[in-house]
Structure formats: structure tokens, C-alpha cells
């Protein structure tokens, strides 16, 4: 099976960040340290290919917090599968998100 997306290093880092619970655009930027301008296009591409899924946060929670609702990203089944590829290609990438190193 051909890959759904080109697995560059930034793409891999974004996927791993989401896997480690950094689910909002700005969180991913903070967690990965990738240049600000690259993160969103990667998220969009992955979402469009079905690797990620973007979901709006519950309005109630946002309202209680007096701010607009945020959009978070989670891995789809395809995404979970793709993680295997990521780790195969960049075996040490998980270390980026281990506690104390991020």
C-alpha cells in the first residue's frame, strides 16, 4: 500500500505530538518547536488525508471558561496505523515527548 502522505520529519513530529496528548494547534507548536508557519499546513494535510480528525470542543466547557471553543485533533484509525511507519522511520522520535525533555 502506498503511503497516504509523505512522511517527512515535521509530519512525524506532529503525529507524535498528538499521540502524546498535545491536541491543539498552538500546543503542537509549543510541544514540537517546529516553525509556527509549518504546523497548521501539516495538520490540514493530515486531516484531509484522514490521518487526523478535527473536532470542536464542547461549547458548554468553553462558555463556562468565557472563551471561544477550540478545535482539537485526534488520530483516526488510519493515523494509529501510520504511527507504526513513523516509529520505523524515526525510531528515536518518541523521546522528544518523554517527560522532562519536551
Amino acid at each position: 500500500m502506498g503511503r497516504l502522505f509523505s512522511l517527512t520529519y515535521p509530519t512525524a513530529v506532529v503525529l507524535m505530538a498528538i499521540r502524546h496528548g498535545h491536541r491543539y494547534g498552538f500546543d503542537v507548536m509549543d510541544a514540537t518547536g517546529l516553525p509556527d508557519g509549518t504546523v497548521y499546513p501539516i495538520l490540514r494535510r493530515l486531516e484531509r488525508r484522514g490521518v487526523l480528525e478535527g473536532v470542536w470542543e464542547d461549547e458548554e466547557i468553553a462558555r463556562a471558561d468565557q472563551r471561544p471553543a477550540r478545535r482539537y485533533y485526534r488520530l483516526t484509525a488510519v493515523g494509529e496505523e501510520a504511527l507504526g511507519d513513523v516509529l520505523e522511520r524515526f525510531p528515536t522520535i518518541g523521546r522528544l515527548f518523554e517527560p522532562g525533555t519536551a
Binding site: 491543539y24 494547534g25 471561544p68 478545535r71
Partner: peptide
């Protein structure tokens, strides 16, 4: 509109 909402929410949240 969805694009705008997402960016505004992120900026507002970070600012707060």
C-alpha cells in the same frame, strides 16, 4: 468561518 474560529480561539486562549 471555521478557519477563523479556530485561529481566534487559539489566540484568545493563549492570550488568556
Amino acid at each position: 468561518s471555521s478557519w477563523c474560529r479556530e485561529w481566534e480561539a487559539e489566540l484568545t486562549w493563549a492570550w488568556r
